[in-house]
Design a binder for these strands. Structure first.
Length: 271
DNA sequence: ACTGGCTCCTGAGGGC
DNA sequence: TGCCCTCAGGAGCCAG
């Protein structure tokens, strides 16, 4: 599920249900995620969550103790609000129990996600310290982006998914943004003209913003969420549409692996 | 400094 | 029905 819009949607969805309520206890069904959940996580009990921030696809829970939880959903993770009486689903690995009666459940079949606990400033954590700019922030601009692309000979689609260049652009939205900007995904980043990059930046931003807005429409269901928050398939122009006609020009959509990831494009609309 | 390949893990779907 | 294969929305790590 989780690309950046899904992570942001999750953040917005859970925040009102968990903020400023004391964490009464923590239930760990299993700790062997991509990285082991550190035993120090038990220290969160007795404190409360003062804010939830998103950096890249990481969610950072700031606690009143001064410590933080860093949560990543990986490929298959999700967070949902439940009542304590709700039965545990297969692959529900963790519950954070709150004094307001809610539980925050972490569900992740593939266990590529992670939950870390740190008493240091979270942005200095090794997983976060070297991340590139947020795509929706002013730090992601023509100047820095063109400079970074100039040194890259990898396909632009692969480059977009490199978190040192820009964070939060996953496999779906990389293909979608390149379609929107009319750029072939195979083009080496260093070959792109300035005017193409100038088009690509707002294309990325528009698609991410639009998806976040649509994620928002599922927020009202969040409490009784069935673990499947909004999914934006209905708006995808190329992703997953191999062989189907381009919605603009009717040319069949092409598919190819780039850096081991499925990539989709329209051979006529993208040059 | 870059780049490609490999890796963690479970589940869904297709072919036979 | 079952078995086997491939693929899946992430991303860190390592060797070259």
């Amino acid at each position: 599920m989780p690309e950046l819009p899904e992570v942001e949607t999750t953040r917005r969805g859970i925040t009102p249900h968990v903020l400023n309520s004391t964490i009464s206890s923590l239930i760990l069904k299993r700790s062997d995620l991509r990285l082991p959940i550190p035993p120090s996580i038990q220290e969160i009990a007795g404190h409360s969550i003062s804010s939830i921030e998103r950096r890249s696809k990481y969610l950072i829970f700031h606690l009143t103790s001064g410590a933080s939880l860093i949560i990543h959903l990986g490929m298959s993770g999700s967070l949902r609000i439940t009542h304590p009486s709700e039965l545990w689903k297969k692959h529900d690995h963790v519950a954070i129990c709150l004094s307001n009666g809610n539980q925050l459940r972490f569900h992740d079949p593939r266990r590529f996600g992670l939950i870390l606990h740190t008493t240091h400033p979270p942005d200095q954590h090794p997983l976060l310290a070297k991340l590139g700019p947020e795509p929706l922030s002013p730090d992601f601009n023509l100047k820095t982006f063109s400079l970074a692309c100039r040194k890259r000979n990898t396909p632009i689609k692969t480059t977009l998914m490199d978190s040192k260049i820009v964070v939060g652009v996953g496999n779906i939205y990389a293909s979608e943004a390149l379609f929107s900007a009319g750029i072939l995904p195979q083009t080496p980043a260093s070959n792109l003209q300035l005017k193409q990059l100038k088009k690509l930046i707002p294309a990325i931003q528009f698609i991410l913003k639009k998806s976040i807005e649509q994620g928002g429409t599922t927020l009202r269901d969040f409490i009784n969420a069935d673990g499947k928050p909004g999914y934006f398939k209905q708006n995808l122009m190329v992703y997953g549409r191999s062989g189907q006609p381009c919605q603009i020009c009717k040319t069949p959509i092409q598919q190819q692996l780039l850096s081991q990831r499925s990539t989709f494009w329209c051979p006529r609309c993208q040059k």
